[in-house]
Design a protein around this nucleic acid. Structure first.
Lengths: 139, 139
DNA sequence: ATAGCTGCAAATGCTTTGCAAGGCC
DNA sequence: GGCCTTGCAAAGCATTTGCAGCTAT
């Protein structure tokens, strides 16, 4: 019989209108089984290779974007020239460690944003991101 | 006699420990005369060329980073793969318009951040960035 | 004079794309 | 079978760097 997590991953992909291919299934399991995580394309690609999954880096990029478009992932921009993808799509914020590049969640209820100014002219608010940049003090 | 803004730009550079070269002076005047602004390296380079200032793009990048290190500019990361430099170094936040890439200041006193969680383990808070992403509603 | 700058072009790092071959329905 | 996916390699961007020549002090 088919294992549970496997079936769950198939469902996730089907629900997103994506064919459950070997590559997408492997990446989905790496991403969504277990705790929430923050990955770069490069990281996910190495991880897949380490697990013996053959996937090209281009496919990892394509897949991450497809998952993002499907609402399964959220893209987090904290550093010029590098994209992080967050498996936690709920509203929340981030600690970003300068130097190591480590990203950590801040639950939404631990940051309260008071008065936000109204959006200018003809635009509407899409999202509010709070990034708390932290660093290790000079030794 | 030497014009006022010119002298001011020389002072700014001297204060930052940077030699007042022709290129740095021109860029400083484009950046700091007039209102606060948000520029990318590419934008500043085009603007310089339009004004007849000969500067290479590499020098614009180097200069923007030197100014940032000197505390004259602040780097703002809102989009993967593109850096904005903000002439307003005071604490404040941003509206970012998805689609056009337009950046607008939100004065610090118009956003109140309530309880922030303590920084994890051995790190200290460096800065807190709030980015309000806005977009033009589907027509 | 000399330490610091600049410009060019090449190199880099991340990401995207074109297209032929392969896999799912 | 037909359409969606994949992989590779090439292309694309924004940015950085090496180094010879120029410039402020």
């Amino acid at each position: 019989m088919t294992s549970r997590p496997f079936a769950a991953a198939v469902e996730t992909l089907r629900g997103a209108g994506l064919r459950p291919t070997r590559q997408r299934l492997s990446l989905a399991r790496l991403l969504f089984e277990g705790d929430d995580r923050h990955v770069t394309a490069e990281q996910l690609h190495s991880e897949a290779e380490r697990e013996g999954v053959r996937v090209s880096l281009a496919t990892v990029y394509n897949t991450l974007h497809q998952f993002t478009d499907a609402g399964l992932l959220r893209e987090v921009v904290v550093e010029a020239g590098r994209s992080y993808f967050d498996t936690n799509t709920a509203s929340h914020h981030h600690f970003f460690e300068i130097g190591t590049g480590a990203l950590t969640d801040i639950p939404a209820d631990q940051v309260s944003i008071g008065a936000l100014p109204a959006a200018p002219d003809g635009v509407e608010i899409d999202s509010v991101d709070v990034i708390v940049r932290v660093k290790r003090p000079a030794h």
